[in-house]
């Protein structure tokens, strides 16, 4: 041991090393889980009725979770993953309070089996904001007081934000159509329409300004 290099040992170094080891373990087990899930779902081997380990892509993050095939996406988001922004009201696809995006398309989390969205990109209301900065549609809902009890609001916002992504110049009828499935018993619809049209207007102004600046700089 005489020629062994001098070792230095620091608390920070130890923690870093331990962190890397722990992270590697997590990645390894996640990979194993992914292989298992892939095999389970893509062969003729049936899964369930007990818990099945799956990976779900939600708001840009990957979550490993054990679910029974009968769990809905809404239940999994709220009960297993603590993403309680998605609300469950009717649990029958009649009120759209649980609206999330599956691959950018508005869908009902209460009528979707979580096991059926393995490999799909899920966006919930938590995924719209950036940290403490609200999404434009959320900010407009606040500005226009487009909520009362707030229970329909996350679903309403998801519907309106999806509309603006696919149609930057919506008319009132388009907004009405986009939220035609979102029930609000407080009757906030006129303010929801105003908020959504306001965002469209803001985006047009921003786009106009950007075009103007680009033109002047050119």
């Amino acid at each position: 041991m005489a020629d062994s290099p001098k070792t230095t040992f620091s608390r920070r170094g130890f923690l870093k090393g331990a962190g890397v080891t722990a992270a590697t373990t997590v990645i390894e087990s996640a990979n194993a889980l992914a292989r298992e899930t892939k095999d389970a779902l893509h062969s003729d081997r049936a899964v369930g009725p007990g818990s099945v380990p799956v990976k779900l892509h939600i708001n840009g993050h990957e979550y490993s979770v054990a679910i029974e095939p009968r769990y809905t996406l809404a239940e999994t988001l709220r009960d297993n993953l603590g993403l309680t922004g998605t609300k469950v009201v009717c649990d029958r696809g009649s009120c759209s309070a649980c609206t999330v995006w599956i691959d950018k398309t508005p869908a009902l989390a209460c009528m979707t089996l979580a096991i059926d969205v393995v490999g799909r990109q899920i966006t919930t209301i938590e995924g719209l904001s950036h940290g403490d900065t609200m999404h434009q549609v959320q900010a407009a809902f606040v500005k226009h007081d487009a909520m009362q009890c707030g229970f329909c609001t996350p679903g309403m916002v998801m519907s309106c934000a999806a509309l603006l992504d696919r149609n930057p110049n919506p008319k009132l009828a388009d907004v009405k159509h986009a939220v035609s499935g979102n029930l609000c018993r407080c009757g906030t619809y006129p303010k929801v329409f105003a908020a959504t049209l306001d965002v469209a207007q803001q985006r047009r102004q921003t786009a106009g300004l950007v075009a103007l600046v680009t033109e002047r700089e050119a």
Binding site: L41, V47, G48, G50, V52, I115
Partner: peptide, 11 residues
């Protein structure tokens, strides 16, 4: 909902 077995088919 009752418990059930789930089979994802590709063909």
């Amino acid at each position: 909902m009752n418990k059930f077995v789930f089979v994802d088919c590709k063909t």
